[in-house]
């Protein structure tokens, strides 16, 4: 564990920028997001969980898969430097790990790299994640529902704790240990720092809401598939898709071509969501998820039933963004409570 006095943090980031392409929380007008760092002085270390989810660092809103000219296909070169993320919160660090299960692995088809996503892997595999422990969780935070907590280091390479006067860098993964071990010129964290860290973690835990037990939710949801509970829950949903676009784990995408046939153009993938009717609309006009409630059910079942069946985890880390942006106040925690309270 090393300690970086706050007035020297720019120095640390600048050193990081020598080999890494660094992303950190930034302001874009009224919104907060993760942006490439050009000047460490511009990093706002006070930003809590960013409005926009950091998934876009590794899975951009729109990403060029390749360019073409006539019949020729050209791969697009990207910044070859590995990515370092500074200031990622625990929920988001775990979200990236969930996305890595989808994109980074051939989980469904072991040993077959046809099922690995090269665009994700070229960014995420070599990345280093500096996560910031949350000292003051918000009312919308519910990471503790998923066995995590505001000071949990899962999914991070290095956990960073703000003790007021300094950042304490606590390596979590092998990659993190190696990086911290390679640094020179930084003091070890003191006993006093460790005491402060412990106290901060305790305070943060206290600020979290009560844990809601979700055991068996995947079977419960499956049993309720055809039940009217989805009509009740979905009645006010307007299918705007804001929840999915802001979500740190939603990862459905569309593939579209830009440009003209036989000319210059590019194939891009763009975020998409199961909330939109066209998502599953077939060329014949048939739509297997015709009704608003069918689509709402799909989103929640993907998170709390299907993903568990396929990857043994919930596809939600309790970041609370969807709770904040939903225009009709559809709270994912209420959905879970309602489902768990429903008789199959």
């Amino acid at each position: 564990m090393i300690r970086i006095e706050k007035e020297r943090i720019d120095e640390f980031i600048r050193a990081l920028m020598e080999t890494w392409s660094v992303y950190a929380p930034a302001r874009d007008g009224k919104n907060t997001l993760f942006a490439p760092v050009e000047d460490p002085a511009g990093i706002d270390h006070g930003i809590f969980n960013t409005d926009k989810s950091p998934k876009e660092i590794f899975f951009p809103h729109s990403e060029v898969l390749f360019e073409f000219e006539g019949g020729e296909i050209k791969k697009v070169e990207r910044d070859a430097r590995p990515i370092a993320v500074w200031g990622l919160r625990g929920c988001d660090a775990r979200s990236l790990r969930l996305l890595d299960k989808v994109f980074g692995s051939a989980w469904q088809k072991p040993d077959n790299d046809m099922f690995e996503d090269p665009y994700w892997k070229e960014k995420y595999d070599d990345s280093i994640i500096f996560g910031t422990a949350c000292n003051e969780p918000r009312s919308t935070c519910f990471c503790n529902w998923f066995g995590a907590g505001p000071h949990d280091g899962a999914g991070m390479d290095v956990k960073v704790v703000d003790t007021g006067e300094a950042f304490i860098l606590d390596p979590v993964s092998e990659k993190g240990k190696k990086y911290i071990g390679s640094l020179k010129g930084w003091a070890e964290a003191t006993k006093k720092d460790v005491t402060k860290m412990k106290a901060a973690a305790k305070e943060a835990d206290k600020a979290m809401g009560e844990v809601f037990g979700m055991d068996g939710i995947q079977e419960k949801m499956a049993d309720l598939f055809l039940k009217p509970v989805w009509n009740d829950i979905g009645a006010k949903c307007v299918n705007c898709g804001a929840c999915a676009f802001i979500c740190s784990t939603c990862h459905c995408f569309d593939v579209q071509d830009e440009g003209k046939k036989g000319k210059k153009g590019k194939r891009i993938r763009i975020w998409d969501t199961c909330m939109f009717p066209i998502f599953t609309m077939e060329a014949s006009g048939h739509n297997p998820r015709d009704m608003s409630k069918d689509r709402l059910r799909q989103r929640f079942m993907h998170k709390f039933s299907y993903f568990i069946n396929n990857y043994d985890e919930h596809l939600c880390t309790g970041c609370g963004r969807c709770v904040i942006v939903c225009p009709v106040n559809l709270d994912i925690r209420e959905v879970v409570r309602e489902v768990m309270a429903c008789e199959a």
Binding site: V102, F103, Q108, K109, M114, F115, D117, A222, H251, C252, F253, D254, V255, R269, D272, C274, F279, T280, M281, E282, P288, Q298, M301, H302, S305, Y306, N309, N310
Partner: peptide
């Protein structure tokens, strides 16, 4: 079975029926 599809490798998330993806399962 058939569903609308994009990636064909179980990532883009649209051809599922329940936990199964038509494109890979």
């Amino acid at each position: 079975l058939e569903r609308r599809m994009k990636c064909g490798i179980g990532k883009c998330g649209r051809c599922n029926i329940g936990s199964k993806y038509i494109c890979i399962d």
